[in-house]
């Protein structure tokens, strides 16, 4: 079903547009000697990919590389047509917020800000997303509503919301201003099964509306059916424990 959706190309006239994310032979190693090598990985526009891997299996390093928080020692990481490994300093931070909506495992929000203000944070740093969002508060309210947050909670401090509500606020923040790619790092692991499913459904629906690609990292294989593609980290990356790569 998703395959047909992906078939509808909306950007330019190309039948096969550039992938949202493309990694070619990238490598990175921490000073301690822990390293990762990624041979090839593509995330197509609007594609939903579930990246499966055990905890501590290099998922964080993988996401850090993708988001440009760490710089690879070699290779290319193209994000929406830009080699993020070549960006330096503040530009990579700007590029990150322009391109990615990021959802963490937990503690996504600044607990002293209201739900609405939390959603608005990326717009503070991304002019691109600010422009796309239009009326920022209206758009934030719309997203929160669509993700099932009661309007009465919009102006409540995020710290007073339940974990499930907090994750949905985080999803709204990731989606606002239409970034090309949603990165989600085990966003459901802090939720119980029913909540996890409900959260995922809402996230996927909004991701579809926003026409963003979704790369979600998880160790939970039961979520696989909601994705276009399931990739095991072991298959695309080699993690070395002792020797620097």
């Amino acid at each position: 079903m998703r395959a047909t959706l992906i078939g509808i190309r909306r950007f330019s006239g190309l039948s096969d547009p550039a992938p949202s994310l493309s990694i070619r032979d990238a490598a990175f190693s921490w000073e301690g000697g822990f390293g990762i090598e990624i041979a090839d990985f593509d995330l197509k526009a609007r594609e939903r990919v579930l990246l499966l891997g055990p905890s501590g299996g290099g998922k964080s390093t993988f996401l850090n590389l993708v988001a440009g928080i760490t710089t690879p020692s070699r290779g290319r990481i193209d994000v929406l047509g830009t080699d993020i490994a070549r960006l330096r300093g503040a530009r990579v931070d700007r590029f990150r917020v322009d391109s990615f909506g990021i959802i963490f495992q937990m503690f996504n929000l600044m607990p002293w800000l209201s739900a609405l203000d939390n959603v608005l944070v990326p717009l503070r740093f991304s002019r691109l997303r600010r422009r796309r969002a239009g009326d920022a508060r209206a758009e934030a309210s719309r997203l929160l509503g669509a993700l099932g947050i009661d309007a009465a909670l919009f102006n409540q401090r995020a710290g007073t919301l339940s974990v499930g509500q907090q994750q949905r606020v985080a999803a709204a923040r990731a989606l606002i201003g239409g970034p090309g790619i949603i990165l989600a790092d085990e966003p459901t692991s802090a939720l119980d099964r029913a909540n996890a499913r409900a959260f995922l459904d809402l996230l996927l629906a909004e991701q579809e509306t926003a026409q963003a690609a979704l790369l979600m990292v998880s160790h939970d294989e039961t979520l696989a059916d909601a994705f276009d593609r399931v990739v095991r980290l072991d298959d695309i990356a080699r993690v070395s424990g002792g020797v620097a790569a």
Binding site: A67, D93, R94, V97, R173
Partner: peptide, 16 residues
């Protein structure tokens, strides 16, 4: 730390 990580993920540069 949480606050810093959230800000970095949302585009705050180290300088910010």
């Amino acid at each position: 730390r949480r606050e810093m990580a959230i800000l970095r993920a949302n585009g705050a540069s180290p300088r910010t």
